[in-house]
């Protein structure tokens, strides 16, 4: 059984099971069938630079290389940020209790690209103290959005999880990444620089002989 997602809310703990929601489950999906002139099924392949060798599914791999082209194992590499500072690894969100302390505004939420949606389902764990689920549901349905770092399996890449109530009243976990939106203003146009040499030589009077 999958581990539940556990939140700490107003001194109690609330646990949820998750169920991924995507377009396929809501609207169905489209398969593409490709056939040749004889009606036989075809599949995609990769034609190599030599013009005749073809690679099928699973025929390629990913390698890590040092700047001088030497093979590097992923396990021997360390993650750092753009300034070279080490990035600490995070535990899976399912291995921790997530405190619901950081409320996000609608604008905060809208500033992220959401790429994963999970429907949350609550089941009262057997033999445990009652969980404040009704209180939390009511709070979220009033429009509260909670934000927390989210990582499914743990590692260096943490994304942002948003806990909110959907328009249909169900609770959802929306996982997103922040975007780089910025306010823009009217930038001053570059000033025209006049060559002082030309300026001194220029006659102030209007020369009609050039017309």
């Amino acid at each position: 059984m999958a581990k539940p997602l556990v939140f700490e809310f107003r001194g109690g703990q609330v646990s949820f099971g998750i169920q991924k929601v995507d377009r396929t489950k809501l609207y169905g999906y489209v398969d593409t069938e490709v056939v040749d002139e004889g009606g036989r099924a075809c599949e995609l392949g990769t034609l190599l630079g030599d013009g005749h060798s073809v690679v099928g599914k699973g025929g390629t791999g990913l390698a890590y290389l040092s700047p001088d082209g030497l093979w590097r194992k992923k396990a021997d590499l360390r993650p750092v940020d753009r300034d070279g500072k080490p990035i600490p690894t995070a535990k899976s969100t399912f291995d921790t209790v997530v405190p619901l302390t950081d409320q996000a505004t609608i604008e905060d939420y809208l500033s992220h690209n959401v790429y994963l949606i999970y429907l949350l389902t609550h089941e009262q764990p057997e033999g445990m103290a009652p969980q404040p689920i009704e209180e939390l549901v009511e709070h979220l349905r009033e429009g509260t959005i909670y934000r927390f770092p989210f990582t499914y399996r743990g590692g260096v890449s943490t994304t942002v999880g948003f806990l909110l109530a959907g328009g249909d009243g169900n609770l959802f976990l929306c996982v997103g990444v922040p975007t780089v939106i910025e306010y823009v203003g009217l930038k001053a146009t570059a000033a025209v620089v006049v060559d002082p040499g030309d300026e001194s030589a220029e006659d102030e009077s209007l020369d009609f002989s050039m017309v």
Partner: peptide, 11 residues
């Protein structure tokens, strides 16, 4: 380190 796609096997 940079990543690169390499060939495992052709058809």
């Amino acid at each position: 380190a940079t990543s690169a796609r390499i060939l495992k096997s052709t058809l």
